[in-house]
Design a protein around this nucleic acid. Sequence first.
DNA 1: TACAATAATGATACAGAGTCTCAAAAACGA
DNA 2: TCGTTTTTGAGACTCTGTATCATTATTGTA
Lengths: 126, 126
Amino acid sequence: MPRGREKITPLMHRVLQTLSASRVHLTAEEILECLEGVGRATVYRALDRLCEQGLINRLSLESGTSVYEYVREPHMHFVCRECGNLYDIPAEFASSLEQIMTKCGHSIVKTDVTAYGVCKNCRMAE
Amino acid sequence: MPRGREKITPLMHRVLQTLSASRVHLTAEEILECLEGVGRATVYRALDRLCEQGLINRLSLESGTSVYEYVREPHMHFVCRECGNLYDIPAEFASSLEQIMTKCGHSIVKTDVTAYGVCKNCRMAE
DNA sequence: TACAATAATGATACAGAGTCTCAAAAACGA
DNA sequence: TCGTTTTTGAGACTCTGTATCATTATTGTA
């Protein structure tokens, strides 16, 4: 379990801070904007390494872009197709999911549960 | 529920056939290759419309690319980070997932459960 | 401290996936 | 049949993300 032992460079630290301070999920470009004067490649590198180390999560959305989040408790995601908002939903069965996959013989590193639809607010507004 | 009522153009039909005939998940570019002489934009358009109509599924992977599959029974996915293979895993709790999301007030159109790790074959091979 | 080796960074060119535009072709309807 | 609408294909374009490489910072060691 390679987790948290690896080195964290100054820039990785800044990225981590940006993400942990943000209440929302950020794209790589948004993080790039937050960190003025920092090279694009450097940000992408930092994001990759932080993902590897399990400190942040990359979420690949339907839209084709990825968003990043600071890792807190395990949870699921809901993406509203109307307003584009991304909601965190408390995880209730992360463990049973893992059991099922393990039963199939695979060993899981990460699970990603995302639902798409119309959120409460958008339904109200219609 | 806008499902299956909409028109299917000749090209959408060919894309649908390609996908239903394939045992594996195909990228847009792979489908493009299967259908020689067909324009790139046309294939992407057909894939979008088939997704909207719920006849096929788009899966947005960690790698940044999307793959498409013909819609059969609900199931989950497992992606091996070693060999890149994508496995279908029988769904066991699609309904309870939907219940949880609904409890949050959102209405779900599609759910996407994908796990990443190392598959059985790759673990054996090590 | 000084010096060499290693790692991190930034600029920029590049690649791949997907989108946009628009004119030509096909299908449709009266 | 003739005009309208839809579908299609070509190609330019955009947007994310990657690769390269020279510069700068960090680290270890004598």
